[in-house]
Amino acid sequence: MKNESMIVSDEEFDEAEREIEALLASLDFEMESSPQRIESIMKRVKVEALLKESTDFVTEGMGKGLKGLTDTLTKLVKKDPEPPKRSY
């Protein structure tokens, strides 16, 4: 089992960091943002935004619709709490 709390001296650690830095210096890390990649992310985000907005709209509408129906039914029940007796 790994013991991650094992102590390393600062000198050893710094030396190891310097060595790895020197080795990795040969790699060209592309840290700049790419306009093309950003554009494709924004395209996806805009689609997601439209979907989210329309979902919110539908959910809100359904909420209002259901609430309206519940209110109407509640009013009806309060107004006429006893169902009419059927005559045969």
């Binding site: 700049e32 943002s33 790419s34 950003i38 992310i41 924004m42």
Partner: peptide, 16 residues
């Protein structure tokens, strides 16, 4: 989701 201005700035800053 309506406005993506701030989101775009964060994206441009960290995408690379």
């Amino acid at each position: 989701p309506a406005d993506t201005t701030s989101y775009y700035e964060l994206l441009s800053k960290y995408e690379g």
